[in-house]
Design a protein around this nucleic acid. Structure first.
Length: 425
RNA sequence: GGAAGGGUGGCUGAGUGGACGAUAGCAUCGGUCUUGAAAACCGACGCGCCGCAAGGCGCCGUGGGUUCGAAUCCCACCCCUUCCGCCA
């Protein structure tokens, strides 16, 4: 959520910023109009309430001295009814304003490349070299199914399309990757590990910005009005909702969770394999930062995610997302993409964003400044990294001519010393 | 799921219809004293909103209700504690 004061004082700045994103400028007009109406209405309501308060006090005094106050009481009863009607109006306008404000996306940072869509993203850097194969590299579906690492057919029987089922060494690889990444973030990069609920309430979803806009993309548990998390960002960021942080910043947290996404707008796309699924595992990193240093924190956050891929020896590139492609709540965002030889495509496995005070304002997360005042802090998060696609990249990059997989050195201790996944006779 | 008790400012904890946005203590900040510190003493000290300001409105878990007037009375819900039941 943007600062309402900025909307009043400098709406052009917001219009401009939203224009760069390609967002609907009508959102700003709707919010401004509701705000103006709200303030006029408040003036009227508060004057009436003041009168009621003053006269009620007088009635109390008069009655103590034995004076009959029936007339005043009757007129205050009438005024009370008027106030109730005014309050009703204020509530309506408040709701309008809030709904409008919740739907205005964050303003992109000045450093972003200006652009319309994903085609205008800029490659900030690349790491590693793409492997030359002496044979035609296979895709992960063929590799994994022939090695018995996953079983899409039975997963569909259990649940439906898009829910992966890992078996044997495949399941073990999933667990190994999670442990490897958590160990890296916690032991070497200074993050505190958390294990969170996988289901959250509506207030949490609004706090991080998934609701109200993305309701269609979330799994909702009707009986209890709870939501399956689409990312650990939601529980981890909401850890500090409605709190004032008094300790040193940044606070760095990390958590493994499964992520649930309905992918409502993507039905029929990439239905086969692990590239687009309704449930995947992910290790997420979250930072609560001082506004003065949040952009430095973003750079180290990306570096922390890159370290995962460097240890695994996987070639990747870092994209600086353009103004037209960053997500709703982000002010700046880097995507990290892995090369998948079988797909002949770059796969997004991490998205590292600075939300500035956008989430903090929604979730009411503040810190104590040097001058003693409280203010909204900056939140950041990044995948460190997302599974399923990471598994795709490992299988496709480390495949051998005979269809076996040579595991990267860093994973060997996490696989009980297993160096090669081979077809079992 | 059932029963009982409880939810008040950063913390502890008073307050059962009008002078209460709230007594007191602790904590914090400023000052006096001191070589410095501690102690003592003096003072300041919740948040949000509207307003140029003066000032006003709102906030005692949340939402309703009663009343001229609600932290206080009534209803519903949420959360916490204890006990019982069930349970991986």
């Amino acid at each position: 959520m943007l600062d309402i004061k900025l909307l009043r004082d400098n709406p052009d700045l917001i219009r401009q910023a939203l224009g760069k994103r390609g967002a609907d400028p009508a959102l700003v007009e709707a919010a401004m109009e509701a705000d103006t109406r709200r303030r006029a209405l408040l003036k009227e309501t508060e004057a009436s309430k003041n009168q009621l308060n003053v006269v009620s006090k007088e009635i109390g005094k008069l009655r103590q001295s034995g004076v009959d106050t029936a007339a005043q009481q009757a007129s205050m009863r009438a005024l009370g009814d008027q106030i109730a009607a005014l309050d009703e109006k204020v509530r309506g306008v408040d709701l309008e304003l809030r709904q409008a404000m919740l739907r205005i996306p964050n303003m992109p940072h000045d450093s972003l490349p200006v652009g319309k869509d994903a085609a205008d993203n800029v490659v900030a850097r690349a790491w590693g070299s793409v492997r030359e194969f002496s044979f035609t590299p296979r895709g992960h579906v063929e590799l994994g199914e022939s090695l018995g690492l996953f079983d899409f057919t039975r997963a569909t029987k259990m649940t439906g399309a898009g829910f992966p089922l890992y078996v044997g060494a495949g399941a073990r690889l999933e667990r190994a990757l999670i442990n490897f990444m958590l160990d890296l973030h916690c032991r070497e990069q200074g993050y505190l590990e958390m294990s969170t609920p996988f289901v959250v309430n509506t207030a949490s979803m609004i706090g991080t910005g998934q609701l109200p806009k993305m309701a269609e993309d979330m799994y909702h548990v009707n009986a209890d009005d709870l939501w399956l998390i689409p990312t650990a960002e939601v529980p981890v960021t909401n850890y500090y909702r409605d709190e004032v942080l008094t300790g040193p910043l940044p606070v760095k947290l990390t958590a493994y969770t499964p992520c649930f996404r309905r992918e409502a707008g993507a039905a029929g796309r990439e239905t086969r394999g692990l590239i687009r699924v309704h449930q995947f595992d992910k290790v997420e990193m979250v930072k609560f930062a001082d506004p003065a240093t949040s952009y430095q924190e973003l750079e180290t956050l990306v570096a922390d995610a890159e370290a995962v891929l460097q240890r695994l020896g996987l070639p990747y590139r870092v994209l600086s997302l353009c103004t037209g492609d960053i997500s709703f709540a982000a002010a700046k965002c880097y995507d990290i993409e892995l090369w998948a030889p079988g797909q002949k495509a770059w796969l997004e496995v991490s998205s590292c964003s600075n939300f500035e005070s956008f989430q903090a304002r929604r979730a009411n997360i503040r810190y104590r400044r040097a001058d003693g005042k409280t203010d909204f802090l900056h939140t950041l998060n990044g995948s460190g990294v997302a599974l399923a696609r990471l598994v795709v990249a490992i299988l496709e990059n480390y495949q051998e001519a005979d269809g076996s997989i040579t595991l990267p050195e860093a994973l060997v201790p996490y696989m009980d010393g297993l160096r090669k996944i081979e077809r079992r006779p």
